[in-house]
Computed example of a mutant assay.
Amino acid sequence: MALVTFLSDFGDTDYYVPAVKAKMLSINPQLNIIDISHKIETFDLAHAAFVLRSTFRDFPKGTVHLVAMNTTGSITQGYIGVKLEEHIFIGPNNGILSLLADHDPGILVQFADIHVKDSTFPAKDILAPIAAKVASGAAIHDFGGPLSNFRKLMSRQPKATRQNIIGHVLKVDVYGNLITNIRKEVFDQLNPGTFSIEFGRESVSRLQTGYDEVEPGDCFAFFNSLNLLEIGIYHGHGGNLLGLKYDSVVYVNFAS
């Protein structure tokens, strides 16, 4: 069955999400449309990219991913299709698709003018029909030619030395836990066996393997299923209680 995922900041109280789905289903009623999220913070490309980057590889190869973020924004330079790690992404050329991996996509297509109409709702009128047709067997090359100007955004990268890693919070989740950009493989390469992790006013010197290895109200730190350092307060909203938010600094200091 043709599989399409759908990611947007449309929320769930307006007609936008069902209208986009209806357009795709009118082209192929057999499509299987999976919602990744429609509660992305409004206009927040970094949030959307983090959610999609964290999930797309779990879908079967060949899945089509419809990305409806800032489709009418001033930074959007047309509409594109990309092939990345055997997945197809349909969305705006505003930089969001450049944040899904640390390498460029293998195929980049600029959708031709014949497929791009004037619209105040391009997710429905432009992107949805192309996504439905590609999921039904068409190639993204059928809708345009090579993309010469792939808009890129730079994600913040941690700084690592033998003395420390300086990272940042990528996401505060619904529980108040803080997911950072500090990767396990980097930590493992540099860790001499003794370390401290500093965040906000707190510091911990050991890692857990899950949330419930500390008492309620205590801080925890472990590498999550994404192999990213996650910190927080068990049974507490770490973001609020620690005064941390997106882009807050987190330090890992190694003993010499």
Rank of each mutant, 00 (worst) to 15 (best):
L3M: 13
F10Q: 01
D12G: 08
K23R: 15
M24E: 09
I27P: 14
Q30I: 13
L31N: 11
I36K: 08
D44R: 07
D44V: 01
H47E: 03
F50S: 07
D58V: 04
T72F: 02
I75P: 11
Y79Q: 08
Y79L: 08
E86V: 15
G91Y: 10
G95K: 00
G95R: 02
S98K: 03
S98T: 02
L99I: 14
L100Q: 05
D104W: 08
Q110P: 01
F111N: 10
K117D: 02
D118Y: 12
S119P: 09
F121A: 00
A131V: 09
A139D: 08
I140G: 00
H141W: 00
P146N: 12
L147E: 05
S148L: 13
N149H: 15
S155A: 15
P158E: 07
T161Y: 12
T161H: 13
N164W: 14
H168F: 14
D173P: 05
Y175F: 11
E185Q: 12
P192C: 04
P192K: 04
T194I: 01
I197A: 04
E198C: 14
F199D: 06
F199T: 10
G200E: 11
S203G: 04
L207K: 00
Q208F: 13
G217E: 00
G217F: 07
D218Y: 13
A221P: 01
N224R: 09
N227G: 04
L229Q: 03
I231L: 11
H235L: 14
G236Q: 08
G238E: 00
L244A: 00
D247C: 03
S248K: 04
V252F: 07
F254N: 14
S256K: 14
